[in-house]
Design a protein around this nucleic acid. Structure first.
Lengths: 135, 135
DNA sequence: GTATCTGCAAAACATTTGCAATTCT
DNA sequence: AGAATTGCAAATGTTTTGCAGATAC
């Protein structure tokens, strides 16, 4: 459990600037895998001088430091997730929401990749979510 | 096994125009999940009047008709695949190639999604491929 | 002859880059 | 002061849109 975002950044070799702390705090409390634009729009009232460039820079840094992961699930905007555990993403084609789901990939047979160096495993499913299905 | 691409398009409710046939033929023989730009550049000598708009239009139609799938694996360009079977994609962070690998997802436990309507399952792995690892 | 398909040019977005101003120590 | 960070404005790259001309049945 992370108690202090500034210390958490420091422990990951990232200097905790005001913008970085606010962006990470927002990412950690978001459960909907926000885009750059969403992050920007949510923080601009609190940080009136914030620029999108800073959001881009910060997320690129977070990814490099493995604090955040980029989710490629649609071709338009990239989404971001501060939850680094392995879990799946479900994208509803109707409401466009992206949900997390737990996942046990331990018995995925990946014999073919034996000689490959695996860095990240991503699983995403597209379909219609529970809410949209019952409408 | 598909013997005639024109008939295959017809059977999927797509009128087999010259451009569509050539694009699908190229997609089917490509094993590297080409981008719009790659498809365009490979066909322009054979179809000098081809425009990228047509490539975009055609791929959008193919996806709608479930002849092709869009692979979201990087945030830049969308890649396309005419192989509609469930298989995984491995993206090498060094050489940027995307490889297919076989996959048995039958024992992926997806209890959480019981009430969801699953349309497509995508699995991609990022890392370093065999070739790049041994350099 | 009417529908559809194609392709050009322009527009719309997302993302990156160069650089100057600001901030932090 | 010096180094890193921020943010503006412009550039880049991908995808979409509007529309006119071409093509097919």
């Amino acid at each position: 459990m992370i108690t202090n975002v500034g210390d958490y950044l420091k422990s990951n070799d990232v200097k905790p600037s005001y913008q970085r702390i606010k962006i990470l705090e927002f990412l950690m409390k978001s459960k909907d895998h926000p885009t750059v634009d969403t992050i920007y729009r949510n923080l601009i009232s609190e940080i009136p001088t914030l620029s999108k460039t800073t959001v881009y820079n910060t997320l690129k840094l977070f990814i490099k430091k493995k604090i955040t992961t980029a989710i490629s699930i649609e071709n338009s905007e990239t989404r971001f997730d501060a939850d680094m555990s392995v879990h799946g993403h479900f994208k509803c084609e109707k409401c466009d929401e992206v949900f997390d789901f737990d996942l046990d990939i331990s018995n995925l047979k990946l014999d073919e990749l034996k000689e490959y160096d695996i860095k990240q495993t991503h699983i995403y499913i597209r379909g219609i979510c529970k809410n949209c299905k019952n409408v």
